[in-house]
């Protein structure tokens, strides 16, 4: 597997994979949005407001999924010191932050009409906010440390430390008495959502997952190109300096 995880192979792989994933994303999200607005019924308690669920829940899943991807890549960085693993980890952070931000904002806009408040320091909401802060801290870490290998190692360690927050987010609604509702899709007794609402939700979630995969591949490609550009720039500068030094040597 490591044989395939080299930058040239990744660039060759993502070239056809990006348009395929982008096409699937467009189709799934178009079908999903049609079902959300024209097929799925209003909720008997929440009314039309339940339509926020179709973006809020996939955004929450993707916020956590991106972190799992980053944690796997962090292991690749620490165990194999693989540059593609580092690129994958670094590229997933802004995407995870974006999905977590969307989750928090849409949750807040859903909370105001349903709970009467935009925000409450509830265990689920707070742990999700902590996830956003971890993402922002990791992005800042990569910006702060100039040496890429040191930055990769520090970010990988911090990512794995922050992994403890993922089960806290998942089980916060079971461990503590929260205003946020408990899990209603992935439960031991099966989904607690009626199928006419469950299918649009699952299609939107798969569409959002393909959106993440597409954007992640595009970001990894950018990261590989950025490193290639840095290397070539350093070589060009070094060559220029060598020529400059030679010109100051006394003529023989």
């Amino acid at each position: 597997m490591l044989r395939y995880a080299n930058p040239s192979f990744v660039l060759r792989f993502v070239k056809p994979a990006i348009p395929i994933c982008a096409g699937l994303t467009a189709i799934l999200l178009a079908v999903g949005l049609y079902l959300v607005f024209f097929v799925a019924p209003a909720d008997y308690q929440q009314g039309e407001t339940v339509r926020i669920m179709y973006i809020h829940v996939p955004a929450a899943w993707l916020g956590m999924f991106a972190y799992m991807v980053m944690s796997s890549a962090a292991l690749g960085t620490l165990v194999w010191r693989h540059p593609v693993a580092d690129a994958a980890q670094k590229s997933a952070a802004p995407l995870g932050a974006m999905f977590t931000f969307v989750c928090l904002v849409t949750g807040s806009l859903w909370g105001k009409p349903m709970w009467g408040t935009y925000w409450v320091w509830d265990a689920r909401l707070t742990s999700m906010l902590v996830l956003l802060l971890i993402y922002l801290a990791l992005i800042a870490l990569w910006q702060t440390i100039e040496e890429p290998q040191r930055a990769a190692k520090a970010a990988a360690v911090m990512t794995l430390v922050g992994l403890v927050n993922i089960p806290i987010i998942k089980f916060s609604v079971d461990w503590w008495n929260t205003l946020h509702q408990p899990a209603s899709v992935f439960t031991t007794s099966g989904p607690a959502i009626y199928s006419s609402m469950l299918w649009p939700l699952l299609i939107m979630a798969v569409g959002a997952t393909f959106l993440f995969l597409t954007l992640h591949m595009m970001s990894i490609r950018n990261e590989i190109l950025r490193r290639r550009l840095d290397r070539l720039t350093h070589l060009a500068v070094a060559a220029g300096e060598a020529r400059g030094t030679a010109s100051f040597e006394p003529a023989r």
Binding site: G47, E48, T49, R51, I52, I55, H56, A59, V102, V105, T106, L109, W110, K112, P113
Partner: peptide
Amino acid sequence: PHTTFIVASYAIT
């Protein structure tokens, strides 16, 4: 009455 919240959610996303 909650259309604004729904539209705002989709627009921000």
